[in-house]
Design a protein around this nucleic acid. Structure first.
Lengths: 263, 263
DNA sequence: AAACCGAGTTTCAAATAATGGAACCAATCG
DNA sequence: CGATTGGTTCCATTATTTGAAACTCGGTTT
């Protein structure tokens, strides 16, 4: 639904189907897939068969439904350990969370959206959307904006083109122009704020994690709620968070830094 | 290295490459892959290209290495939520861990090995991927044996055929015969023990999670060390653990239960 | 009971994409 | 500077994918 036009190759198409199943977020019937698929019946059928026999999907005999297979969990574990900033950042996140007494998120860009790769809860966790592996929109989250602000121009345009600009709350940024203006500001001050743009009552301050050459590796945020804190207070924390981001960046660069941003 | 012979279809081959990268557990050079691959240079090259452009792999310009892409983490999150017992079992694991004061594991079968889908540490709660997603051998872990014991005969044979029977410790079960004998016993008493078979000093008691029809959904274990506990003590815990397994099973069946066991 | 239906599965010739040997390029080495 | 290693591209051959249509199998309607 957001992969737009063509994606060459058989593998690409198969992965498209996999993504489709993923977006349902629940076991799906073949017919449901067919209805939302661009492939003809027989073709889709074969894909689903292949993916199932490969363990990427599992078929529930009793309910006649397909769901993502556990093989993915195994692969993801390896991905998380080798390609995410999480292993490197872990101890820093813990320290930051302890110091701030708030929830800390670590995110990276996946295609045009924000992927949370780690999260450290505050002692008294505020229930909210997010957890390792979850995705969120880039244009209206702190971490998202922090990363976008430091993307090279054509990559930024590419990502912006794929944003939905859906209005989640009254303060959601809903136009490309408004977003670009804000990104400019973020670039200057070095950190981004989420002013209840994604979830009412939830605010955060985020900073990008950049390599020495300015390439975006990910972003780091401290999240709170309007009831426990305020934008002013969070803004004051920005320097501390930036320090942590720097440390993570240095450690990450020292070891390995796969380019996590796709086209 | 264990997918043996042929795996038809282009998608299958591509996934094979993906698995290969995964087993390295670190960023790899093209040449390293080539050395361990059954594909000719040009073919492997194209696969890697495709997978990279699809976001399943990421290429590190500076170091000329490939690693698993973060797209997998996103997919896995969905897989974990819809196809694993974890979401259903979570609260039960927490309760069990608190009651026992020990670490609790939740596992499912993935192909012929044990896949840990959740873990509750005696003390600190950690996010999923640092713990979930790990794999272990089926023939010498508590959860593995608990599941094998209740598999239908031909599926069991199939899985046994794929076991390495590598000797990890002096007490590792290293023959099919010994394993089958022990499985018989486990079937009778309803729980399995790990007597330092995988890691020296680590012991555990595990029970299967079965549907009403006796189909294996997963397994549950309480792990300890010889220094903190003993086989006798753990054995005494079996009934409690079995209760938890029952509860999980009922809840799982009530909602959804994809067949998690592949060929 | 016959006709009908919708969901899922199989067939098969045509269209397309994958294949891999060989050539090529670019560093690095001896 | 010629040789070697590691990576990339070409392209004619070959094998796989494709998808319209036909079929199967429960169940439902007429």
């Amino acid at each position: 639904m957001d992969d737009a036009y063509k994606s060459a190759g058989t593998v690409g198409k198969a992965l498209e189907v996999l993504d489709q199943v993923a977006t349902f977020g629940r076991p799906v019937r073949f017919a449901e897939l067919l209805a939302t698929s661009r492939f003809p019946k027989a073709t889709l059928y074969r894909f689903v068969q292949t993916l199932t026999s490969e363990g990427m999907l599992v078929f529930d005999q009793d309910r006649q439904t397909y769901a993502l297979g556990v093989r993915l969990v195994r692969l993801a574990h390896a991905a998380w350990e080798t390609s995410s900033l999480a292993p490197v950042a872990r101890s820093h996140l813990d320290a930051l969370s302890a110091r701030m007494g708030e929830t800390v998120h670590l995110a990276q860009l996946d295609n045009a959206s924000v992927l949370y790769v780690d999260k450290v809860n505050a002692r008294d966790p505020v229930p909210m959307f997010s957890q390792a592996g979850k995705v969120g929109p880039a244009y209206c989250t702190g971490v998202g904006k922090a990363m976008l602000a430091f993307l090279p121009p054509e990559q930024l345009s590419n990502v912006i083109r794929q944003q939905s600009f859906h209005r989640f709350t009254p303060s959601t940024v809903t136009s490309e122009f408004a977003l670009r203006t804000e990104l400019e500001e973020i670039r200057e001050q070095g950190f981004a704020m989420d002013r209840e743009e994604h979830e009412p009552g939830i605010i955060c301050v985020a900073v990008p994690i950049l390599t020495g050459q300015g390439r975006v590796l990910g972003a780091l945020s401290v999240t709170s709620s309007t009831s426990r804190s305020s934008l002013k207070v969070l803004e004051g924390c920005a320097p501390t968070i930036r320090d942590t981001a720097h440390q993570i960046s240095e450690e990450a660069v020292a070891w390995r830094f796969p380019d996590t941003v796709s086209i």
